[in-house]
């Protein structure tokens, strides 16, 4: 570890946004009698888009070593995300660990985007190189109809429980995992609770004559 703290490059490369759906209305609510006209507004949901070369600093160095394996690179708020196809995931992680010294994996986190047809389920790996003090993200996607992706426990043994958690909560099937069983939910639990199509649940609560609906049925502003 060096005494000088290596910061992420400060120059931000040019990016374009990636539209992933729309948001309607100004106030986020639906179904109320809006007479203002603002309820008809349509705003796109724009995720940070693909970055252009040069990425700046060590970002290019790491990207070079993944040449041919990358789908796209996103740089947002000084954090870099490498998008790889699931077929290339194992090779990419192996290279990052062995050649770029990303010794430490902080686990995998699932994200469910039901509107992204063909790439509904995302698996996001956070890697840290303690040697160079660099942190990156590697992201891969699977379609909801075929939720398989390769297990990387053989590369990062720490992923054992993290992959079990992603299976438990999102139904991601990590091929080659030594024992892909549920970890947080009971063994016989139906469904995968953190998917967007899984309801939060809850019952209305009566209090002093009024009724408070469960959180997922309250008025929301999203």
């Amino acid at each position: 570890m060096s005494d000088e703290i290596e910061k992420a490059p400060s120059t931000q490369p040019a990016t374009t946004g990636e539209t992933a759906g729309v948001r309607r209305g100004m106030f986020g609510t639906q179904g109320s009698g809006d007479t203002s006209g603002y309820g008809g507004l349509v705003a796109p949901i724009v995720f940070p888009g693909q970055a252009e070369r040069p990425y700046g600093g060590w970002f290019d160095l790491v990207a070079d070593s993944l040449d041919g394996l990358l789908e796209s690179v996103v740089i947002h708020r000084g954090e870099i995300t490498f998008h790889v196809a699931r077929g290339n995931l194992r090779e990419a992680l192996q290279k990052l660990r062995d050649e770029q010294r990303f010794e430490f994996c902080a686990g995998v986190s699932g994200v469910h985007f039901p509107d992204e047809t063909g790439r509904e389920l995302h698996a996001v790996y956070s890697l840290l190189s303690m040697t160079h003090n660099r942190r990156i993200r590697v992201e891969t996607t699977t379609p909801d109809s075929d939720r398989h992706l390769p297990s990387c426990v053989a590369i990062y043994p720490t992923l054992d429980w993290h992959e079990r958690e992603a299976w438990d909560f999102f139904g991601l099937l990590f091929d080659g995992h030594p024992a892909l069983t549920r970890i947080q939910m009971p063994d016989d639990w139906p469904g995968h609770p953190q998917r967007k199509d899984y309801p939060l649940g809850g019952i209305p609560v009566e209090y002093k004559g009024g009724t408070v609906p469960p959180p997922d049925q309250r008025r929301s502003y999203n």
Partner: peptide, 24 residues
């Protein structure tokens, strides 16, 4: 791991808890 889709609520928050990992 905080994910936002531009809304007023978190789209997804995943906590990488050290107890969870260390217990392995």
């Amino acid at each position: 791991h905080v994910v936002s889709n531009g809304g007023t609520r978190p789209y997804r928050v995943h906590f990488r808890d050290p107890s969870f990992t260390n217990l392995q």
